[in-house]
């Protein structure tokens, strides 16, 4: 790798392929094994007997898992929606307003939740809820709303990063053009900026959704006794030992996530290709236009 970081060919190409192959083996072996063993008939997780969908059947009839899944999904959709709204506002502030009183603190609040260890965030939020619970009952019983608030807090930081990176690329003169043509500030945002931000908004939504679906530690701290999310259920089950039912659940999660990522990726690549083709077409036309203009210039 040391030698090859300049050249595109030969040894460098082999090094590149080997590195990526090793990385993929490292990343996919655990997941694939998991999926394979989810089709194992035996109750023993590690000994292969025969192919069976038995554990999937057990899974769909497990009411605890189904209700935990529903709860996780509800929270994730709600949290992702709110995070995208807050993230868009924060990104707007960072890119367009840029300078105002307390701007450093604002930036810190919008980045720190991404990196802070979850145990700290979880504990801090729980203690807040206990304190607030005296005045606001929603926080006292620490149900779905309390979990939602916690998830929005850390998801909106991720949403901000994603939306901001797109926001930076927006052309301010397009917004000025809209104003120039008579659109007020709100109209400019919804008719001009939002459509351009849409890919980032979708990405931010998906990221927040996954983050919320996936969160274990923070949710464990704040969730009241009646609220159990899917990761909490899986975690407590794993602590009791490996179980083929969890394998089946994991396989489904992996399947859904892969399909989601793949579709997202495919639509992105398709769009890029379409735009590239259109741009090439327009360039070809421009060339023709230029040539005809030269001829026209000489004739005229």
């Amino acid at each position: 790798m040391m030698k090859g970081f300049l050249k595109h060919h030969g040894a460098s190409n082999i090094a590149k392929a080997v590195i990526l192959l090793l990385a993929l083996i490292f990343l996919y072996t655990p997941i694939m094994t998991l999926v394979v063993y989810s089709f194992n008939e035996s109750k023993m997780v590690t000994i292969w007997t025969t192919f069976s969908l038995h554990w999937y059947n057990v899974l769909v009839h497990d009411s605890a898992i189904i209700s935990a899944l529903c709860m996780s999904l509800t929270i994730a959709v709600m949290a992702a929606s709110a995070s995208v709204i807050i993230g868009t506002m924060a990104a707007f502030v960072m890119v367009r307003v840029r300078q105002f009183a307390g701007e450093s603190a604002f930036m810190l609040f919008m980045t720190a939740p991404m990196v802070l260890p979850e145990v700290i965030t979880g504990l801090a939020l729980l203690l807040l809820y206990v304190t607030l619970g005296d005045f606001i009952p929603v926080f006292a019983d620490r149900g779905i709303i309390a979990i939602w608030v916690a998830h929005v807090t850390f998801c909106s930081a991720y949403a901000t990063v994603v939306i901001r990176s797109r926001f930076i690329e927006l052309d301010t003169s397009v917004e000025e053009a809209a104003k120039d043509l008579g659109a007020g500030p709100l109209k400019v945002f919804f008719a001009i900026m939002l459509p351009s931000l849409m890919p980032a908004e979708v990405a931010a939504f998906l990221l927040s959704f996954t983050m919320s679906m996936d969160d274990l530690v923070i949710t464990s701290f704040i969730a009241g006794p009646e609220s159990t999310t899917l990761p909490m259920l899986i975690f407590s089950s794993i602590r009791r030992g490996l179980s083929p039912e969890i394998n089946a659940l994991a396989a489904i999660i992996i399947f859904v996530a892969s399909i989601g990522t793949f579709i997202g990726w495919l639509s992105m690549v398709r769009k890029q290709k379409r735009i590239a083709a259109d741009v090439a077409k327009a360039q070809a036309e421009a060339k023709r236009e230029r040539e005809s203009s030269m001829l026209g210039g000489l004739r005229g």
Partner: peptide, 24 residues
């Protein structure tokens, strides 16, 4: 890029669980 990112879109606990099965 997609292949490298894909595993991190699956559940964190599930990924740890997968390693438990491998390292046993």
């Amino acid at each position: 890029f997609m292949l490298l990112i894909m595993p991190s879109w699956t559940s964190f606990v599930v990924r740890i669980y997968a390693w438990m099965a491998l390292l046993k």
